[in-house]
Design a protein around this nucleic acid. Structure first.
Ligand code: FES
Ligand code: FES
Lengths: 158, 158
DNA sequence: TTAATCAGTACTTAATTGGTACCATTTGCT
DNA sequence: AGCAAATGGTACCAATTAAGTACTGATTAA
């Protein structure tokens, strides 16, 4: 299945939480509690995001993490890229792998970068502010029946 | 990293090979040889593609596989979807998983379908015919030096 | 009849992910 | 100074998933 790792998934959840903190530092423990995520994971993820310069960190008492830039300047692609490395949809188009043995017999090789870029553009087009505000089409606390309907309509994608 | 499985990767390679066969049936063994792929894998993948009605199969001597529709009517999303199921980029937005425990505390939940659809649209926009003809920007048999240059330019995406 | 070919399933092994644990470092507070 | 709250970094284990193989059965043209 095409899916992002849970690390990146949690990463986006945590970033939205920080986007709502409005510049105040939030500790890993608080965020884990708020979003009901396991603290060790949260800690690991926030560290990685800080290393990628998406967050700034403050150690010590009253320390924590905050966004390094405005939420509008952070995209889904930024977050996913920080947590799982470059988006390389196939092994062949990964620069580190550098040279698929089948390349000479492969008609597609030149097209993978194009496909990757399309996906990257899709992820780049969604910024953190958009993700942080509850979606009017599918409210935060919705009724089970309503949820069943939306799932039916938009759940299956392909 | 976001990546498709090798099965889907090979699937696209094989589909391009069949697109170039122009309606003549090709056996799994021949395709495996042409593309330098392990025969058991090729066999498994072609079966799956046939079951998904992207290929038609003919058993017996002189049998093989051929495209079920014109190459222009088959998209990358079709092939990937056939081989790895629906594109559900996060567990939460997978209809079978049906109900993330964190949903009540999660601001992003409503946005995953949007992200998935963006990616799906990107994959849908690329059809098999496009993928089958050699890319003018990166020809089929290119000189090692040329390859180094293109890799440098377009290799890194994010 | 026979050989080529697809159909289906089950299995093994390798790779990746998810998660935890541990210890070091920094920093404000008393 | 000393302590407690916080991040920084690394290493490790367990569970899941992917990759690849093997085998047996069904169909069909020559
Ligand atoms: S299979 Fe690797 S370049 Fe096409
Ligand atoms: S984490 Fe599952 S819905 Fe947001």
């Amino acid at each position: 299945m095409i899916r992002i790792t849970r690390e990146a998934d949690y990463g986006i959840v945590l970033m939205t939480a920080l986007a709502q903190a409005e510049g105040q530092p939030r500790s890993a423990a608080l965020l884990a509690q708020q979003r009901r995520l396991p603290l060790p994971m949260v800690s690991k993820i926030l560290k990685a995001l800080a290393r990628a310069n998406l967050l700034t960190s403050q150690r010590g008492v009253q320390g924590g993490y905050q966004l390094a830039r405005p939420a509008t300047a952070i995209s889904a692609a930024d977050i996913i890229g920080a947590l799982e490395g470059p988006i390389a949809i196939t092994e062949c188009s990964d620069e580190s792998h550098d040279g698929c043995v089948r390349q000479d017999h492969c008609e597609v090789s030149g097209h993978w970068p194009r496909i990757n870029q399309a996906i990257h553009a899709a992820l780049q087009s969604i910024n953190l502010l958009e993700m942080s505000r509850p979606d009017p089409l599918q409210p935060l606390h919705f009724h089970p029946l309503h949820r069943a309907m939306t799932t039916q309509v938009i759940g299956r994608l392909i």
